[in-house]
Write a protein that binds this DNA or RNA. Structure first.
Lengths: 329, 329
DNA sequence: CTGAAAGCGCTTACAG
DNA sequence: CTGAAAGCGCTTACAG
């Protein structure tokens, strides 16, 4: 039975936990901060009390006693569109998750050479590409790094772009589409590339070709996708199904189709990626759990600050079928 | 002479200020929080010490002693595009400014009826339109409100959209353009409407007409602007100068012009609004000082929390002439 | 009008 | 391995 947690309800403090577990507050603190040298039995007692009382440390108190707040740098590759809805959303979730632990997220701009212009106690890197120079640069300074992407031996998390691309392909194939078009983001970036590769791979397995003329660069923008599709249409390219590597691009694709007199999903089926409600609410798309990716990144960040060994985690995606895909006529 | 302020430099505390001013820390706190009942002379001594030592209160300590952090709700009208770069940037600046004072900015979603879905200790409302229902709704609950926009008798701040629209017009007129096109955002919103009205007003004063056919709704999106202009061009509308109510739309305008074989600024001059570096870096535009608007909003928010009387402030804008405008040939 | 002191909720040497 | 206590930088009754 849960008490209604009013804004004004007396909050559970570390002292409550200590009392409940029959130990001192210092010990509770040690357990919570994973310091070595606590007997397993006491640790368990503490952890049990923590979860029973639903204790959540006060960020301000923590920050104050730590002397200075840890600052987490948020850096997006200059080749990526800094204001993409996905990054914005990701940063919002991440900031909220970090705030709970007394960590501050700071957006750091790029230097002319593309590296972060300021320092921080740890970094989250987004808009990752292979051989991303930022990783080595930060490592050289001994600054912990967490990637929204992936790289061997690093700390990273990402949505399952590979499975997402595959699911989009399978869905379209199941509906009988074989003349497929793919609108990509920046293929130099991991997200776009992984989606593309998995999409094409799944088609190949099914014996369906994806000629170069049907792979269009939409640059992860609505207008980019619109122009690319419109040009393709004018150039005589034909297709009955489209996979766009983001919902914004799916929007552009649909607009281009409509402007050309084609109907969605009557004439052409369209699948997006991300599942951002503000982009076409009837869109069939691959949902990625931004909040979960952000929460995982926050956890990795905290581990990195404690010097724990690197690990990585792939967050599952899910195909959400709505109104922009239909069986081929 | 300023000391290099290392991350590790001993920070100036309220105690240092108290000592320097020859008073107790309690008194310094009273002055800083504008509590009544401090002798003018002592107040001045404290303020002098504060600025001489460049004292900046520690947000965490403040939050801790205040018992619970104040939460500021950030709400954008559902009719506005939540992920517009401008809002994102504004929220970033605002969040940073508030954090310094131990205030937390929380993005709050909309209910189906468009009102904020959660409560907070105070609200910042963006995407304002006339007779905005959110204002009365929050007032009725006694929640302080600050507007990024304007309304009689309220606390508000905004960039000088009116002067911005005028400047865009004057610039184009000075270059000899008289066949002008305006691409608007959502005219139901104040920002778009004020810019439009001022632009048209300035033209009228100069005896230059702006027929309805040359006022296009771009919906504050790149693609919206692109399609609107392209359609106008196909419909035979002619013009040599364009004012787009945002840089994103200016981008779309330029793309549409180029796709139609027109050159910028050779054939057509284009002026944007905002001055976001990521949108066309050679763009002639009206710069608004987002950081300043955000800082002002933060100040108003703090005043509202202290129950001070409402006031409002217009932040000046500035025309930045770059490569997308030229003299009419 | 202002000072001395308690308290906010944590962390971490310091003992033991 | 763990407790008692000091300290982080503020605010605010409580006295005077």
């Amino acid at each position: 039975m849960k008490r209604a947690s009013h804004q004004t309800a007396a909050r559970v403090t570390i002292e409550d936990v200590a009392r409940a577990a029959g130990v001192s507050t210092g010990t509770v603190s040690r357990v919570l901060n994973r310091r070595a040298g606590v007997k397993a039995a006491t640790r368990h007692a503490v952890l049990e009390a923590v979860s029973r009382l639903e204790y959540r440390p006060d960020a301000a108190a923590r920050e104050l006693s730590l002397r200075h707040p840890k600052r987490i740098g948020f850096h997006v590759a200059p080749s990526s569109t800094r204001f993409s809805p996905f990054y914005t959303l990701f940063a919002q979730h991440l900031s909220a998750a970090l705030q709970e632990s007394g960590l501050r997220l700071e957006t750091v701009p790029s230097r002319p050479d593309g590296l972060p212009a300021r320092s921080a106690d740890a970094f989250v890197l987004v808009g990752l590409h292979d051989d991303d120079a930022r990783i080595g640069y930060l490592h050289a300074q001994g600054i912990p790094v967490v990637l929204a992407g992936h790289a061997e031996g690093e700390r990273w998390t990402r949505a399952d772009d590979v499975d997402g691309g595959r699911q989009a392909a399978l869905h379209l194939l199941r509906l009988g589409h074989t003349e497929l078009l793919h609108v990509t983001g920046d293929l130099g970036g991991q997200a776009a590339f992984d989606r593309f590769r998995a999409f094409r791979g799944a088609l190949q397995e099914a014996g369906v070709a994806l000629p170069d003329a049907r792979v269009l660069d939409g640059g992860f923008t609505t207008l980019g996708a619109y122009r690319a599709v419109r040009r393709a249409l004018e150039g005589g390219v034909t297709f009955t199904g489209v996979f766009a590597a983001s919902d914004e691009m799916a929007c552009g694709v649909i607009a281009a189709l409509e402007d050309a007199g084609l109907r969605v999903p009557g004439d052409v089926s369209v699948v997006g990626f991300d599942d951002l409600p503000e982009f076409g609410d009837g869109l069939t798309t691959v949902r990625q759990d931004v909040a979960k990716v952000a929460a995982t990144a926050a956890a990795l960040l905290k581990e990195s600050l404690r010097g724990e060994p690197p690990r990585s985690e792939v967050i599952p995606v899910q195909l959400v079928v709505r109104g922009t895909t239909a069986r081929r006529r």
